[in-house]
Write a protein that binds this DNA or RNA. Sequence first.
DNA 1: CAGAATCCCCTCAGATACTG
DNA 2: CAGTATCTGAGGGGATTCTG
Lengths: 119, 119
Amino acid sequence: MQDGCTVNLTVRYLARKWSLLILLELYKGEGHTRRFSELKDCLIGITQKVLSSRLKELEKEGLIENRVDDTSFPVKSEYTLTPSGLEIIEIVKDMKRWALKWKITNIDCSCQDCSQCVL
Amino acid sequence: MQDGCTVNLTVRYLARKWSLLILLELYKGEGHTRRFSELKDCLIGITQKVLSSRLKELEKEGLIENRVDDTSFPVKSEYTLTPSGLEIIEIVKDMKRWALKWKITNIDCSCQDCSQCVL
DNA sequence: CAGAATCCCCTCAGATACTG
DNA sequence: CAGTATCTGAGGGGATTCTG
């Protein structure tokens, strides 16, 4: 299947709803790290099921890492950008520049002004 | 909606099945131009309906242009990459490099070897 | 706290048939 | 040649409930 092309696959799971925003939140976090509950709180409207699925996908793709501390209670689960995850943020920044250059309508996120955002 | 973020929208319509391959075919064509039937023939497995929809989306997004010659019969319809379309190809190339660097499994398209392809 | 399990809706993409 | 129209099935994503 042509659809199996590497680039195509990459774009496709990045395009899933919330994936990009999750990566961005990790990028903004200290040490590019965030906890499950932190992500859930700052990604307004995301459900636990979707957050959980996206994190698993991104982890499977090697873009993020999960460290679980189950010695304490409650359990602590931290997600961090990997080197490949950090590099893809740079590509997302390029896309951001492209979008700002060519797209007349700059639709704001509810959370931030796109033209001012960390990307 | 956070989902309305400009970058997110860009990624999402690029991620639609066939979109990237259509852009690539135009890129490869003389003058970055291809006819409807040429696209249909080289994108093995695409249906006319899907090709038609993708082309309309890409045109609406300003990535491609459509020139119709209805003075002749049969009608001739040509699609060309716009400047913004050409620029996004460069970003796709970056993603390609990223994928080749970080993805161990380089799944081939049926049409070409990813590592050798024009991207 | 960090999830897994269910149920349900809705859109996307494929197949097929038809037209100016 | 370059589409449009209609039907169908699979899967993504939301809401809600339950658990170690």
